[in-house]
Design a protein around this nucleic acid. Sequence first.
DNA 1: TACAAGATGTACCTATCGGTACAAATCGTC
DNA 2: GACGATTTGTACCGATAGGTACATCTTGTA
Lengths: 186, 186
Amino acid sequence: MPRTIGERSDAIPALAEVFRTHGFDGASLSLIGAATGLGKGSLYNFFPGGKEEMAQAVLDEIDGWFRREVFTPLREAKEPRQGIREMFQVVDRYFHSGRRVCLIGAFALGDSRDRFAACVAAYFAEWVDALAEALRRAGSGRAEARAQAEDTVAAIQGALVLARAADDRAVFGRIMRRQELLLLRK
Amino acid sequence: MPRTIGERSDAIPALAEVFRTHGFDGASLSLIGAATGLGKGSLYNFFPGGKEEMAQAVLDEIDGWFRREVFTPLREAKEPRQGIREMFQVVDRYFHSGRRVCLIGAFALGDSRDRFAACVAAYFAEWVDALAEALRRAGSGRAEARAQAEDTVAAIQGALVLARAADDRAVFGRIMRRQELLLLRK
DNA sequence: TACAAGATGTACCTATCGGTACAAATCGTC
DNA sequence: GACGATTTGTACCGATAGGTACATCTTGTA
């Protein structure tokens, strides 16, 4: 009884790129087929639920990645200020310094929000929570930490919007750097 | 030779709502027809260029509105600090306190960015410029004013993403209020 | 080498897409 | 009321959408 999970998960990065680039509605099965190199037969074998299951798999993968690489390190960093510094590094790398869009942010603004509302809401809530926790451990009061965390996550999402709008990744780096300074000053 | 422009412009608010809600690709002609109360005949009579011309008309309308209600007042306010305060009020009202999404931000993240790249880029560039000008007049140095303006426009866009993701408009108000305080402190 | 299970390509389905053609209704002007 | 121009509804177009059915190929195991 061979486990075939490996194959399915191999398709997810390509799926993520297609959804990121074209959105949920814009990602047609022919685009998906071209990007993954998989025909409809394979696609529907791996994802019997169709496009919706494909997108859900991508969201789950992103959620897992951020939990592993961002949220948990933030919460468990020995030195919270250093943990925050590393969050900015990891996030900058993840978004290719602003060249890459946040799929979950795009879904939040777009047509597909309702379909994946729970995922989308949970992702941002967790990010804010984890960052607030680190800030609190770094010395901020509970309320101040939450406020700073909310502002920072919003700044990052807004920076992605601006970077993509201007087709200029420099703006992303500038906003990220200033936000990091703001959080870690004092 | 009767001027029929009046009719065409009457359809634009409804068009804007459809594109805002469903995105460019998601806004099908049947949705557009239902929202505007216009059949295909009328739609293609007013907008011979089809969906693309409809979306362009909406973008132009938004651009004009912001120029008139936000950018110009920012640049020409007698008292720049008061002008900035009013910008936050007007923007809060425009986005229905976070219940309404920024169409141009959604286009920037979505599939339709390339199609309307010039509009999208110009909108944000103008916003940052106008706000930076006001901040400079309020006493900031040139570089600092630009940085603050960039951060603020990004914060607003990010706040819209978070508000829509969490389906919670309170977060929009919180971020806006803190950003206003940050700009006008000292 | 035989066999079952999984993987894949292809043909096909219905619904809808954006867009066009055009005749009929409507409207402003004289 | 007549006329020309605009406005509108309807039928229709080819293309493509997402999805299903199924026969055929691979593949791992014994």
